[in-house]
Nucleic acid binder design. Sequence first.
DNA 1: CATTGATGCTATCCATACGCCAACAAGATA
DNA 2: TATCTTGTTGGCGTATGGATAGCATCAATG
Lengths: 201, 201
Amino acid sequence: MLSIRQQDTYRFIRDFILRHGHGPVLEEIAEGLGIQSRGTAHRYVQALADAGLIEVIAGRHRGIRLTEQEEEDRSAYILPLVGNIAAGLPIEAIPGEEHIDLAEFFMGPNRFVLKVQGDSMCEAGIMDGDMVVVEQRNRADDGDIVVALIDNEVATLKTLYKNDDGSLTLKPENSLLPPFRYPADRVLIQGVVVGQMRSYR
Amino acid sequence: MLSIRQQDTYRFIRDFILRHGHGPVLEEIAEGLGIQSRGTAHRYVQALADAGLIEVIAGRHRGIRLTEQEEEDRSAYILPLVGNIAAGLPIEAIPGEEHIDLAEFFMGPNRFVLKVQGDSMCEAGIMDGDMVVVEQRNRADDGDIVVALIDNEVATLKTLYKNDDGSLTLKPENSLLPPFRYPADRVLIQGVVVGQMRSYR
DNA sequence: CATTGATGCTATCCATACGCCAACAAGATA
DNA sequence: TATCTTGTTGGCGTATGGATAGCATCAATG
């Protein structure tokens, strides 16, 4: 089990390698941790190597590598949030926020998942085969992406707009498909999309 | 049978570990329970350990762990998978597969999350502000979406194509942006995108 | 009324975690 | 080669936190 500072050290090293392509030097680690002592940094590095999280080539400058195996003790549902990435810029570390908790990201009361078929929402980043997390609800706000049942027969995934005359517009996010307008009593909101996910294999 | 305060303590500890990734310190437990005494907090921790709900590593700072069975309890991370949805059709129930396990969907060894800035991959359904799950790896296959470091300076998110002459093409998924071709030694693969997620607020 | 259990406080002991520095050895570099 | 940088090790000190004990209060109970 790692101490707090050991965990800090591991995160710093991992982020550093991802950002620079090579390992840090002890002094850079110390600076990253906000301490003055190379010796202390070295001690943390040793602890991480003992724990099997990193590999150290003895004596070698910048001789720190990440191990292939994942640490088992990390909570199984939290992924490290390394930083922002934008085309043409180095990965920018996010200060403060360091983890994505999948539960926090997606879980909530009355939620379920639908698998999306078709490209009708592709311009909103919802592609064929994606999963959408839907919160069951009867009401929705203007601009929400909703699961709507029309005439009690067909269910669709669309962006909802409320018109001044009380009618509703359901708009596919695909410029090939036209929006449709319905009187409110033909449309039943079944839920609102609160999340979306995709897995590449 | 746990007393009221013991239950409070257990809830606090479990939430703390899920939130922070490591156990609380006695003083934090005391504060969480609204009491002033580390000693009292310690007594509750002992009771929970005796009851088998937590494990305590003696003497170790923050040495509280959840028991195996508690950690295995995934129910908090499983969403019901209701079915497929396609425009113009009723929701079609999926036979067999009935749940989405977030861990199974996203977790794996050596993975981390990056927050995407910009629209360079929007036609692949990766929008500004999305999170991508990246598996840290040095090699990638043709057509993979990768995090690539160019000239050890700039990191980008692009689709990777390998050319016959050994060079690599990095292609933005945005018809406004051109693909670029690099000699292999200028490009360092830092990871491959294995998942993507988005949260609507 | 005495007993018991749950709850809470304070004080104390000592191992752990954390940090600094100095010295030396082993790369790296000019 | 000479010099600088970096890795490695050991010693030292301080602050924090875990473990334990003793005492007090209160409510429930027979």
